[in-house]
Nucleic acid binder design. Structure first.
Lengths: 255, 255
DNA sequence: TTAGTTAGGGTCACATTGACTCTAACTCAG
DNA sequence: CTGAGTTAGAGTCAATGTGACCCTAACTAA
């Protein structure tokens, strides 16, 4: 799973060249993903932001935790590469996947220069269960990760910042939830991401006035108290409003 | 100036290999930039958005206009590469330069797969004068470009969309202007980008209440009418608030 | 039946915003 | 020197959005 680095080096012109030769080689291209999910906190039980990390089994940074990532393989777009690699390394198949940023600092990797195009994903709580095949994948609280390999700490911080900014005006929150959800659940998503309590009444007013969310005639049963109404998100899919469809079939682009 | 494609191919493992061999080669990395400047419209004389394009002197798309771009050279960060290439191809050295998006569709370039990390820049009207050395660089109205090489039309549209969205709440507008500017000039920037008229009085109230802009004791003389006061932007530099400093010296990142 | 808890509706004060009016300050024509 | 024309810049008013509070409805558990 983390052998991609070796694999990528194998097709490069100077896989075992000296330093001067390596500097002449073009930078390697990698795809990584920051995956966010809401899971209940260990202490309070309230939903908080978590993300899965993969333990490195090779140098450099052997034994440390890193973002899931891999090489860009022929015949797949950037998004396809992120999606496939995510499935291979963590077993997750997020429905929401968007490009975050391209990191291309000179000394990100000690051996060879690597440019990483980083994606970020949101997964629902139900599908966030790791297939648990391996002990080398584990969930961490997003605001407490540290000691990551490479510059992945910086990447996680940037992803968190972008997530909080995008929550302010966008419809991302729904991607943490299933098809049907209560307003209290939606409010908990916002509270977890923004890290501050919100007034329930004002939140209701705000979200019911907004377009793209509609009440259903179903109610959530089984609680200890009055059953809340279930709502559905009927707004537009987010990918078209946020990035160009560089995956479209009939474009021929470059430089 | 546009020979970089050839140059990049020269260091790849299979520069003249057949199709099957080329498909095994890693994707080439390129840096391109969308440069925006405000220039007076030919008809109305009101400021409108313009951008410089470079005429391709080689296949593919020989003779068509394309975004300035080039290869990513060793020992320079992504942003440095964009900045250097901009100077080489257009002679411009924008002060505002930010990463836009990474385009990595499969068929962007007919011959070989190319992943382009695209930057965008804002330049002031004064410095927007092309050194004019060549006839292969020309300014075009941003909302009227067409027939561009590769998928550059799509890239320009996306950059325009991002620019308009970012104007709503940000301090980008100042980068189109010099150090001192009148409120009417600043309003014209907004009107040009957002493509709709704004109420002068309300705009004044909005912008004077906002932080980061301060009145000076200087006035713009020489007009036909009452001289307007000159203002200055004293807010924070934008690059830190919008993207991580992946150029920082002591990080070691990758995957 | 009653206590406890959440759902969900409402009120009030305050800030923000669009549309509009009015006066001050300057230039230019005569 | 005088008045017309134009823009700068301050102010008004109504509509709307928002935070901080209620209050009652509806359900569960004891």
């Amino acid at each position: 799973m983390s052998e991609w680095y070796q694999h990528a080096a194998a097709v490069l012109p100077n896989p075992s060249g000296n330093i001067a030769e390596r500097r002449m080689a073009p930078p390697a291209l990698a795809i990584s993903t920051v995956i966010f999910a809401l899971k209940p906190s260990v202490n309070s039980g309230r939903p908080t932001l978590w993300l899965p990390l993969v333990r490195r089994i090779r140098e450099p940074f052997k034994g440390q935790w890193a973002l899931p990532g891999g090489p860009l393989v022929h015949d797949e777009s950037l998004q396809e590469a992120a999606s496939r690699n995510l499935l291979e390394t963590t077993g997750l198949a997020p429905r929401y996947l968007e490009q975050l940023y391209a990191f291309g600092g000179l000394h990100r990797s000690p051996s060879q220069r690597v440019v990483s195009i980083v994606y970020w994903a949101l997964v629902q709580s139900e599908e966030a269960e790791l297939p648990g095949e391996e002990e080398n994948v584990r969930w961490f609280r997003a605001d407490r990760v540290q000691g990551l390999a490479f510059d992945h700490q910086e990447i996680v911080d940037y992803a968190l910042w972008r997530l909080r900014n995008k929550m302010e005006y966008a419809s991302i929150a729904y991607h943490f939830l299933g098809e049907y959800f209560t307003l209290a659940q939606l409010r908990e998503v916002y509270e977890a991401v923004l890290d501050r309590p919100l007034d329930p009444a004002n939140f209701r007013r705000h979200v019911t006035n907004a377009a793209g969310i509609e009440p259903s005639d179903r109610y959530l049963q089984g609680g200890k108290h009055r059953p809340p109404r279930l709502y559905r998100y009927t707004g537009p899919a987010p990918s078209s409003t946020t990035a160009p469809n560089s995956t479209s079939a009939e474009n021929r682009g470059t430089p």
